[in-house]
Amino acid sequence: MIQRRTILKSGLLLAASSLSLPTLAKNSSIATGDCCLRFYNTHTGEKLTSTFWAQGEFIPDALGDINKVLRDHRTNKIADIDPELLLLLGQLNGKLGNSKELHIISGYRAPESNAFLRGHGSGGVAKRSLHMEGKAIDIRLPGTDLRNLQKAAMSLQGGGVGYYDSSQFVHMDTGRVRYW
């Protein structure tokens, strides 16, 4: 009997190998080196340090660990996080000279969590949020001014960047380039 983890690993390998290096690694320093991210999930208290990209390839087990820490904390559902989003976060860290943990406010969001947030007055929750596709993340970086974090994210031109001062986070996604 084939184990579920083996099937998931195979799927991740196939997905990662089908994407071209130029599409995923817009920054040549990431394309040729390792990419390590440090996360602190503000809702679960979980921490993760993960090298998910090494020697020009994604590391399936590391991607799985990241998917788990960025899961929907309301439903405990796990989904695949877009590898381009992870590379974008690596580029953001490089731009800021950051080696500290990124504080995660929201990673993957299940459709029912998204509907709940929309229905309970959480402003700025899109009906078709990219969080539901694993293509968006809300972050803060303690010790870094939120406006500086926003400006660094915008300078990458990797997708959407939203600034949420009252909630103290910056939204990043791999959708079309746009700012709010």
Rank of each mutant, 00 (worst) to 15 (best):
H171S: 04
H120G: 10
G158F: 02
R178H: 13
T144D: 00
S155V: 14
H171N: 03
E133G: 09
R176V: 10
D165R: 11
A115N: 12
Q150M: 04
G162F: 09
L130C: 02
G124K: 08
M132N: 15
L141M: 08
R128A: 12
T174C: 14
G159A: 07
Y164N: 13
S155M: 14
D138S: 08
K135Q: 13
A126P: 02
F169Q: 01
L149P: 08
A126F: 09
V177F: 11
M172Y: 00
T174P: 00
A152H: 01
Y163I: 03
R118Y: 04
G158K: 04
G134A: 09
Q157W: 06
L146Q: 05
H131S: 11
Q150R: 10
V177A: 10
I137S: 01
G160T: 11
T174H: 00
L156H: 09
V177T: 13
L130S: 06
R128G: 05
M172F: 09
R147V: 13
A115Q: 14
L149Y: 06
L141V: 10
H131W: 09
Q150E: 15
V177M: 07
G160N: 04
Y163W: 08
Q168C: 08
V161E: 09
S129M: 08
D173E: 01
H120M: 15
S167I: 01
A126M: 12
L156E: 09
D145E: 13
G121D: 07
T174S: 03
A153F: 00
A153D: 05
M172K: 02
L156A: 07
L141I: 12
L117S: 08
D173I: 00
G158M: 11
I139R: 00
A152R: 01
S122E: 12
G175Y: 06
H120W: 11
G134V: 07
V125E: 14
R176I: 10
V177W: 11
S166Y: 07
A115G: 04
D145K: 12
M132E: 14
L156R: 05
M132D: 08
M154G: 08
H120V: 14
A126C: 11
Q150G: 03
R118L: 10
G160V: 04
G134T: 01
G175E: 04
M154R: 10
R140T: 11
Q168K: 02
M172R: 01
L146G: 02
K135L: 05
V170N: 02
H120E: 15
L146I: 12
G121W: 09
Q157A: 13
G123S: 15
A153T: 03
R178V: 01
L117R: 11
G121S: 07
G124I: 12
L117D: 06
L130Y: 04
T144K: 11
V170T: 03
D165Q: 14
F116L: 10
G162E: 02
T144G: 01
Q150L: 13
D165L: 07
G123C: 09
D165C: 01
L149C: 05
I139V: 14
Q168H: 14
L117E: 05
V161S: 01
A115M: 10
G162N: 08
L141Y: 06
S166I: 09
F116S: 00
G134E: 05
S129F: 13
M154T: 09
L117H: 05
Q150N: 11
G162I: 04
H171G: 03
R176W: 02
K151P: 04
A136I: 10
G121K: 11
Q168M: 06
G121E: 14
A153Q: 03
V125W: 14
